[in-house]
Amino acid sequence: MASAEVLSRQAMANRIAMEFEDGWVVNLGIGMPTLCSNFVHPERQILYQSENGLVNYGPLAVEGEEDFNLVNAGGQYVIPLPGMAVLDHADAFALIRAGYVDVSVLGAYEVAANGDFANWKLGGRKGGGIGGAMDLAVGARNVFVMMEHTTRDGAPRLLERCALPITAPGVVTLVATTLGLFEVTSEGFVLREIAPGYSPDEVQAATGAKLIVPQDLREFQQGHSP
């Protein structure tokens, strides 16, 4: 493997957030995806939705100014934005299933070349944590995934087929990993953008599915908010 640095979590989150369009309703999964809200585009208004019943909530609350009854889906204290709305849990998921969420950004253990992904149960475990992931996966208009390119042991997470129990079949269209940006197409994974200092062969070697490398492969866009 090259000595080049892998992409940071914030770089991955910024790249995913660059895809958000003006007026989109965005749901960010627990963990890495919440970093997407740090990317602010001056000309695009994003409405963040949380499955515990918020539409249009704001950034994390600073310590000492928390409202203990206002949390995002990760249990973090957030602040209200003007025009925020509160729903009960059934309504929060009604809007998710009915397609009012433009994009759900989720973490995952595995993503397959057919768009399946797995993020709720590890091998050999009896219990799992589905949370809202299965509803978001089938309900959101777009499902984007952020994850490390490989496991801690170096095993690939981009695979021909998921080995773990899936969260939903055939829904993922875009994946940002520590090595690049991947589009899921009917032909399989297309490597759209690559981490600086890496070659397509190196990325392929760390991937468990055949990568399509297009002529117009670009370096990973390092977006940052002003």
Binding site: A92, F93, R97, K126, G127, I130, M134
Partner: peptide, 23 residues
């Protein structure tokens, strides 16, 4: 986790939106 894996407690895992809608 210990009780569940040992079979001393039963559990039904439900997607959160399905849980809310079932209620």
């Amino acid at each position: 986790d210990e009780l569940y894996e040992a079979g001393e407690i039963e559990a039904e895992l439900v997607p959160q939106g399905t849980l809310a809608e079932r209620i």
